[in-house]
Nucleic acid binder design. Structure first.
Lengths: 313, 313
DNA sequence: GACGCTTACGTTCGTCGTAACTATT
DNA sequence: AATAGTTACGACGAACGTAAGCGTC
């Protein structure tokens, strides 16, 4: 029994029980993977995979149980290597942030530049995706932390901590009739075509909820995954935009007016998520703290320690 | 980086930083251990051990940190093997109980015989020792569970669950003056020489506490580690015995009389301890449940899950 | 017939044990 | 002088990649 065998099993499962793909992902030969897995099964005394002839069809019951333990072993190995890197050079190494366009574009620039100033030797990578993808990246170890407003708190394998709160704002062209309509109401909004985020992005859930509670049907004529696209189409007169307030800047967006709608939609909370049981490098804590000063290393460790208790903002 | 290297490091630490002993314990050559550890250090990029010339003196700071992770990795490996055994044959395998003489002699016989009847294929081993030794055995993985009245709940690495409660009783020869002295008082007891357990055994702490609270000095003329020795010397007239009530049997002990002292000493709780983070075989749960029917598999798992909460009797 | 897992085989690399060496106490 | 750790070396075995074989879909 060795680490290779465990890694092979994990990768095979991750690649949809396809040995060939697993072998490619691990940069090794496919027969090698096959043989090592058979040897592990042999040593354990039962088969991990259900085979139909020569095809791998599914996991056996013992296989499922054993897989969980295997993932924990490999997680700890990962932690060991990370701890070692941390001791070798506290301030150098890789850091991968998985986030949405909105965060990358509007909330993270100041964080990243401050972080880069403090940790110039860290190799920072940003990955974009939908919130569930971001969560999967962190779970798979492809990314160290995920930052998004939606979905992150639905994964038991993740610890999602509240980073900051924000409100939506409504954006319209300067000549739009809603400009004279203050204070804004949901009913007034619902009378216009809406341009906003795709479901599953940046507080879209709170928008839908607000209209649904009032029994209003909304005409979303365009759903985008980033505020820049939304603003562009609002400028073209396609409809009324609903975007995070932080995405409106009067200087950069001279062709738009922002209308206060803080009373219409619930406050959104952007969260930062890390994988439970994974060791964080010193500079990863630092990044989180720059992002949300309340999330000190101590706070994060505390939240990681008691799994049951949820951190309250 | 491989398992061997990690095992070598752990064993070296356990054996007091002595490579030779570690090599013996692991049934391998000492140069092999030396080389593997050096290679691990090389791969990690720092030294785990502080060396004075060629002697290993202590652990480096990174070494201490890394050791914790190493122990977790190996623990999970251990769990993997155990899970595999469990799947291969649910009802066969080893089970090592670390306990004190008193438990082995008076509370466990019925448990063991019932367990043996239900799981004839399990190879049961009993280890005796002082409570702290029992705790260490479980922590080191030498024993699966520890059963004792003292000390087990002082180890953060262990989960100590209350098994059953019991009271002391006083034993005297049939002609002893205390036979006519009812109800018994601490002051009356303190006027006689006492024969009882060694400190650190079977509720001795509660005995000492009771006398200390009343400001009484006790003359313990003989301190033994088992009730049989105590009873023998009480029969010889050496003094008054204080033993667990369960250790007195009127048929087996015709030369002794038992006196009620349940009002004098606090109730004792015998605990069963398992290592946190270790996987228990199915029959291990069964043993615990036979020992204390309230400790079902569900209860034990629950207690293992939330580390913070202490199980209340 | 294409894809995917297994078997076979030769090379390479890593691991282990013995023996000799060196440093510490 | 004895104990403890490192270096050196040779033998064995494990792991890998290539190539061929065989079952499914």
């Amino acid at each position: 029994m060795n680490f290779q065998q465990l890694r092979y099993v994990r990768e095979t499962v991750r690649r949809g029980l396809n040995l060939t793909e697993a072998a490619n992902a691990l940069c090794t030969s496919q027969p090698g993977v096959s043989k090592q897995i058979r040897e592990l099964e042999n040593e354990l005394g039962f088969e991990i995979f259900v085979r139909h002839g020569k095809r791998i069809a599914s996991l056996t019951e013992p296989g499922k149980a054993v897989l969980g333990i295997i993932e924990r072993v490999l997680q700890e190995m990962e932690n060991l290597k990370r701890a070692a890197s941390d001791f070798r050079d506290q301030d150098a190494g890789p850091l991968t942030i998985a986030t949405t366009h909105t965060q990358a574009r509007y909330s993270l620039p100041r964080v990243v530049s401050e972080f880069k100033r403090r940790y110039p030797k860290v190799h920072l990578t940003m990955q974009q995706g939908r919130p569930p993808q971001l969560a999967e990246m962190v779970l798979a170890g492809t990314a160290d932390i995920a930052i998004a407003t939606e979905a992150l708190d639905h994964y038991p394998g993740l610890l999602a901590l509240p980073g900051f709160s924000w409100k939506h704002c409504v954006v319209v062209p300067p000549t739009h009739p809603l400009n004279k309509f203050a204070p804004l109401t949901l009913d007034a909004l619902a009378r216009h075509p809406i341009v906003t985020y795709d479901p599953g992005f940046a507080g879209r859930s709170n928008i839908d909820a607000a209209f649904a509670e009032r029994g209003l049907a909304v005409d979303v004529v365009l759903a985008a995954i980033d505020a820049d696209v939304i603003k562009t189409y609002v400028e073209l007169g396609l409809g009324v935009g609903i975007i995070p307030a932080m995405a409106y800047d009067p200087r950069r967006d001279p062709h738009l007016r922002a209308l206060d709608c803080s009373h219409l939609f619930r406050t959104n909370t952007t969260r930062v998520a890390v994988k439970r049981g994974s060791l964080l490098r010193g500079y990863t804590y630092a990044f989180i703290e720059i992002f949300a000063p309340a999330l000190t290393r101590k706070q994060v460790d505390l939240a990681l320690a008691d799994e049951s208790e949820q951190f309250q903002l």
